[in-house]
Design a binder for these strands. Sequence first.
DNA 1: AAAACGGGGGC
DNA 2: GCCCCAGTTTT
Length: 223
Amino acid sequence: MENYQIERVIKLVEDYLKEKEDPIVTQLADKKESPFTILISALLSARTKDEVTQKACERLFARAKKPQDIITVSQGELEQIIYPVGFYRTKARHIKKLCAHLLQRFDGYVPDNLKDLLSLPGVGRKTANLVLSLAFKKDAICVDTHVHRITNRLGWVKTKHPEETEMQLMEILPRRYWQRINTLLVKYGQEICRPINPHCGACPIQTYCRYGSTSNIKSDKTD
DNA sequence: AAAACGGGGGC
DNA sequence: GCCCCAGTTTT
């Protein structure tokens, strides 16, 4: 994969997304909100429409914005506040557990390194790298299923697991794109390069992708 | 009606 | 490594 092709593809995707709103996590990061705020919004946004997450974040942060505040909100009230995001019971439990850990082990602050982030309950590699890149502006690549799927379809990487994708992208993706590659590809992956029945016909980068060139693509089979 | 969806945790 | 989770959207 030649570098200029990567640059070209990213430019085209950026153009496609120009008129669209960034996801709530990115918006909060742009507004220089606290890492904790960004982390919570990331947890709430899992498998949830962004507008729904956005409203839930507003309600939650109006009620309690720091770990020491959220820990005092009852499980029931917390569930009620975040209810529309779905998984409300699990997410509320995770958030409370997370706050407790932050207070116990990290003075109530979100750590800024991978190892400590991964030690937090409910935080895996994807979320940790999202926080590192967006909240702490570190050179980290957040690989979720969208990034994983799209970079494989494009032929940028050839991987089975997201962690391998992360490693291979670190080899080929210029550093200045690391922080925003996730933001770019998530929305794009939801609207165009979807897991099944991708809109290859409407795709602005189809000439750089062999994936849709064969007819009747229904699955992610690589050949 | 059934399956896909996203990510982490537990086994 | 594999399976489970929970509720909404897609097929």
